[in-house]
C-alpha cells in the first residue's frame, strides 16, 4: 500500500523531496498529504511522530520548529489534532505535520528532545486541550492554575463561566 500521495499536488522542489523521502522511509506511517492556500499538510501516524520528526530535522533540514498547536475537530473519532509547523531555513520551505488522537486519553510522544522550542508549545496544548505528551520534561499547566479541571479550548467549554461554578449574572436586561 504505497499510493502516490503527492499526486495532483503542485509541490516545490524541496517539498516534493520531503514527501518522496517520507513515503519511501515511512510508507505505512503516512496517512494523507494535502494542500490548502499554498501550504502543505502531511498527516502521519501519531505513534511514529518522534522518528519522523527526527528524520525531518536531520535529513531534510527542518531545524526550526515554528509552532505546535492543537485543534479540537469535534468529531466522534480522532477528535484532537496536533500540528507541528516546521520550517527549513536553508530551503525557505514550510511544512505542516499533523497527528490525530482519540478523545479518550489523548497521548503523543513529546518532541522536546529534537526541538527545545517544543517545551512551552506542548505545555500550551496540554493546558488548552488536555493532550498528554509522553516524556515531556516539565508538563505543567502554563496559563491556567494547576488545580483547574477543565481544558478551555475544547469546544464544549463555555465562553463565559466555569461549569458547576457560581451562576453568572444575566446578560440580558431585566424585562419586568
Amino acid at each position: 500500500m504505497t499510493p502516490d500521495l503527492s499526486m495532483s499536488l503542485e509541490l516545490s522542489e524541496h517539498l516534493q523531496k520531503t514527501v518522496d523521502h517520507l513515503s519511501e522511509n515511512f510508507s505505512d506511517k503516512l496517512i494523507h498529504v494535502y494542500q490548502s492556500s499554498g501550504d502543505t499538510f502531511i498527516i502521519v501516524d501519531a505513534d511514529s511522530i518522534l522518528e519522523i520528526s527526527k528524520y525531518l530535522k536531520e535529513e531534510l533540514h527542518y531545524i526550526f520548529l515554528s509552532d505546535v498547536f492543537g485543534i479540537d475537530r469535534y468529531t466522534s473519532d480522532e477528535r484532537f489534532e496536533v500540528v507541528y509547523n516546521l520550517l527549513s531555513l536553508k530551503h525557505q520551505q514550510r511544512v505542516f505535520v499533523k497527528i490525530r488522537c482519540e478523545e479518550e486519553n489523548p497521548e503523543v510522544d513529546s518532541v522536546v528532545p529534537i526541538w527545545k522550542a517544543a517545551n512551552w508549545f506542548e505545555r500550551e496544548v496540554y493546558d488548552m486541550f488536555g493532550v498528554y505528551f509522553r516524556n515531556h520534561p516539565d508538563l505543567r499547566r502554563i496559563y491556567m492554575p494547576e488545580d483547574f479541571e477543565y481544558f478551555p479550548l475544547r469546544k464544549e467549554f463555555p465562553l463565559l463561566g466555569i461549569p458547576g461554578s457560581i451562576e453568572l449574572p444575566s446578560t440580558t436586561p431585566d424585562t419586568d
Binding site: S37, D67, F69, R94
Partner: peptide
C-alpha cells in the same frame, strides 16, 4: 480551508493559523 499567514512584527514572526 486552512491557512498559516506569517508576518514580521517588531518582535519577530507573528503567525495566524
Amino acid at each position: 480551508g486552512e491557512i498559516y499567514c506569517r508576518t514580521e512584527t517588531p518582535r519577530g514572526e507573528l503567525g495566524y493559523y
